[in-house]
Every structure is written in C-alpha cells, then in structure tokens.
Amino acid sequence: MPNSAATHAVSELATVTAEPGVPKPDPLLVADKVNRHFGGLVAVDVDHVEIQRGSITALIGPNGAGKTTFFNVLSGFDKADAGSWTFAGNTVTNTPPHRLARKGMVRTFQLTKSLSRLTVLDNMLLGAGGQTGEGMLASLFPFTWRSQETKNTERAMVLLERFSLASKSKDFAGSLSGGQRKLLEMARALMLQPELIMLDEPMAGVNPALKQSLLDHIRDIREQGTTVLFVEHDMDMVRDVSDWVIVMAQGQIIAEGRPEIVMQDQRVIDAYLGAHHDQELTASGGSLTEEVTS
C-alpha cells in the first residue's frame, strides 16, 4: 500500500504546472510569506510553497540562496521574522523542533550529529518517541519502562539491519565512518516514524561508493510512506531521486517543477551560472557538488 501511495503522489505531480508557488494536489507542508533577515540582509523571502505528501522533494539553489536558512526556519531551529506554515493541516509557525518532531516532522543535519560517545544502538533508542523511562522519576523504576525498551530495541535493530549497521550496534557512534553516520542519522530519525523527513545535504562528505546506497535508502523511505524533503548541491542526486525540485535564489523561490523540466529552466541556469561561472549545470560527475569541509 505505501508503494502505491508513493506512486500515486508522484503521478499526481505529473499534472502540476511548473511554476513557483504552485498548489499541489495533496500538500503535507505549506508555507506562506516566510521572511527571515539578518540585519539588512534578506536571507529568506518565500511567498508560497507546498510540499506534496508522499513525494521526494529537492530544495536546490546556489550558495547563499537561503536554502539552509529556510530549512532551519521550517524545522524550528531558527525563527522567522514573518510568515506562517502548516504541517498536515496544523499551524506550526515557529514551533520548537522537539514539538515538530513529535508531530511527525524530523530533520537531519548537514554536519552529521551522531552522538559520538553513545553506542549506535543508544543513538537509535534516543530516537524513539513517548518513552516512559525518560521521566526522571519513572526512570528509577525499570519495570515501568523495560517492556517498552525491549520493543524499541527490536524496532531499532530492524532499522539498523536495513541500513547495514546492525553489526555496529554496540560500537560508539563516533567510531563510524562519515557515510555510516549519515545512515545512522537517517535511521535514527526513522525511529520517530515521521510523516516528513527533512534531510540537510545528505550527500555532503559521502564517498561516491556510498552515494548509490544512500539514494536507495531515500527512495526506500518514500516507498515506506514517509515524505522526503531535502536540501542538496549534488545535481546528479537531485535528478536521480527527486520527484519535484524547488529552486531558491537570493532567498526567493525562482522555479519549481519536475527535475527534467526545472533543469532546462533558463532562470535556474542563470541563477546557477551567476554563482558558478566555471561549472556546468547538468554535467555528469557531480560538478555542482560543493566542497563541504567540516
């Protein structure tokens, strides 16, 4: 059933006009007139945008386009100066991140935030919601949380198996490779069983060999019924995996549409060329991949 839902979402998108702020048939996240400025610098000025439920949507744009700031604002890690947005019909404007997560909107970070001195399994267990044992008093009485912990552990192990990390479950997360950390962060977010998962540059700093596997996992997340929104620089990835692409430049959404259409859009090419004279927009080999140094 998830599979067909995903296919349905994608097929619905086929009929949507490729223009900025266009309404979607079944929007999960809707943002209106979102503005964020730092002093005189307008970082985000988004008039209207909708994210289709069940799709993989990419948010792209040249450096300094305001993607990450927009992402931070939507996920509650930064405060908008103006605007409003709803998630699954509920207003979540400037809702703090932990509340958003409980409502089913979870994000990951560009520089992975795996919790180094916790084991891989503990990282996963931390993701589980509604834990009785996280109450300070209840935590002193293990019988109140043992069975829940066992169930969460089972679920965590299933996810770790899926992300090929099961054999590492007892290792410190700090001992994982960069790519494995990305996978762990994704798996950990899935422990919350979110409706929407927001990935901040999931390919940054990942070696090419692992990229294909990451792409598969992202598709897999959609197949399981979770909507994916991601910020990315890697054009190959955007083209391969996304159902819909939103392009930002100078804080505004300048284009959106299915990837093959957006890539041809003159405004998009101009925006990129303006920022990257020496790079070719659609060349293979990931020429637009930003060097991300951590």
């Binding site: 996920s75 890690f77 703090p96 991140p97 932990h98 509340r99 997560a101 409980r102 979870v106 994000r107 990951t108 970070f109 935030k113 795996s114 919790l115 180094s116 001195r117 916790l118 503990d122 990282n123 267990l125 931390l126 993701g127 919601g129 834990q131 009785t132 044992g133 996280e134 109450g135 300070m136 209840a138 935590s139 002193l140 293990p142 949380w145 912990e149 962060e185 950990r188 977010a189 422990m191 919350l192």
Partner: peptide, 27 residues
C-alpha cells in the same frame, strides 16, 4: 540507576549534541 535509564540516555545525548536531541523530539 538514573544513568542507565532512558532518562540518563537523553542527558548523555544532550552532552554530545543538543540540537540532535532536540530534533528527535526531546525538550
């Protein structure tokens, strides 16, 4: 007793990276 419990796990998570723990739904 506290530190082997899920409560202690959240605390240790905060020590490692507070934003990550916030993103996972903990206040």
């Amino acid at each position: 007793a506290l530190m082997r419990s899920p409560w202690g796990r959240v605390l240790k998570g905060i020590r490692e990276d507070e934003d990550a723990v916030r993103s996972l739904g903990k206040s």
